Computed example of a mutant assay.
Amino acid sequence: MRTKTTVRSDGKPNLIVTTSAIRAGTEQETTVYEIQSKQSGPTAFVIGGMHGNEESGYWAARDIREWEIDAGTLVVLPEANAQAVEQERRKWPKGMDLNRQFPIGKPPKNALAQGIWDVIGQHNPDVVMDLHSSKGILERENDEGVGQNVFRSSHEKIIRSNQTAIELLNDEYVTGYDPIYDFVHTFADETEYATAPMLMNKTRLDRNIPSCLFEVTQDGVESEKRARWTKAFVSSMLDTWGIRALRMNE
Results as ranks from 00 to 15, higher is better:
105 G>W: 13
106 K>F: 05
107 P>N: 14
107 P>F: 11
108 P>R: 11
109 K>R: 11
109 K>I: 04
109 K>H: 03
110 N>E: 12
112 L>S: 00
115 G>C: 13
116 I>M: 12
116 I>G: 00
116 I>V: 02
119 V>Y: 05
121 G>W: 03
125 P>I: 00
125 P>K: 02
126 D>H: 02
126 D>N: 06
127 V>W: 00
127 V>F: 04
128 V>E: 00
129 M>A: 10
129 M>Y: 09
130 D>H: 08
132 H>K: 04
135 K>A: 08
135 K>M: 09
137 I>E: 07
137 I>G: 03
138 L>V: 13
138 L>S: 06
139 E>I: 14
139 E>V: 14
140 R>F: 15
140 R>K: 15
141 E>F: 13
141 E>M: 10
142 N>M: 12
142 N>R: 15
143 D>S: 15
143 D>T: 13
143 D>Q: 12
145 G>K: 11
145 G>S: 14
149 N>D: 03
149 N>A: 08
150 V>R: 09
150 V>C: 13
151 F>A: 10
152 R>I: 01
152 R>L: 01
155 H>S: 03
158 I>A: 00
159 I>V: 15
159 I>A: 14
162 N>I: 01
162 N>S: 15
164 T>S: 12
164 T>Q: 15
166 I>G: 00
166 I>S: 02
167 E>R: 07
168 L>W: 05
169 L>N: 03
177 Y>L: 12
180 I>G: 06
180 I>D: 06
181 Y>M: 06
182 D>W: 02
182 D>A: 13
183 F>I: 05
184 V>D: 06
184 V>F: 09
185 H>W: 15
185 H>N: 11
186 T>C: 09
187 F>Y: 14
187 F>S: 07
187 F>D: 08
187 F>I: 12
187 F>H: 14
188 A>D: 00
193 Y>G: 03
193 Y>R: 04
196 A>S: 07
196 A>F: 08
200 M>F: 12
200 M>E: 10
203 T>V: 00
203 T>N: 04
205 L>N: 09
206 D>S: 04
206 D>G: 04
206 D>I: 03
208 N>W: 02
214 F>L: 13
216 V>T: 02
216 V>G: 04
217 T>K: 08
218 Q>A: 11
218 Q>Y: 09
219 D>V: 05
220 G>L: 10
